[in-house]
């Protein structure tokens, strides 16, 4: 039996690339607190790290979660030191934490 076609809202539009410039080096995570389905953990907001690698472009989960047309966003793995995240409470300051952050949450910081 033929299935109905996948609705447009489910399409990931994987053939489209984003025109956003690519980021590298030191970045800061935006300190904003928007409502809704957000994949940036609160404990990383406002923190500065270094891009470990670029992962490519993925449909924005903040739109996908609500069935909205989702534009592609560049996704990065950003590496933070425990010192940056927890300050004096860090267990071992030089240990690190990597997380995936979308580019609309990142701003460049001078190295």
């Amino acid at each position: 039996m033929a299935r109905p076609p996948v609705t447009e809202r489910n399409a990931t539009r994987s053939d489209e690339e984003t025109s956003a410039p690519s980021l590298a080096g030191r970045v800061r995570v935006a300190a904003m607190m928007p409502p809704g389905h957000v994949r940036t953990p609160a404990y990383l907001r406002g923190k500065t790290g270094t891009i470990e690698r670029a992962l490519g472009a993925f449909a924005n989960p903040e739109k996908l979660a609500y069935g909205l047309p989702a534009e592609k966003r560049r996704l990065y793995r950003v590496r933070f030191t425990m010192d940056e995240l927890w300050g004096a409470e860090a267990e071992t300051p030089g240990d690190t934490l990597d997380a995936e952050i979308y580019d609309h949450w990142l701003e460049r910081v001078a190295d």
């Binding site: 953990p41 992962l55 993925f58 071992t92 240990d95 690190t96 995936e100």
Partner: peptide, 14 residues
């Protein structure tokens, strides 16, 4: 202490 720990938080697509 001379082994660095790297924690990986799977926050998105990977």
């Amino acid at each position: 202490q001379d082994v660095t720990i790297r924690v990986h938080d799977s926050t998105a697509d990977m």
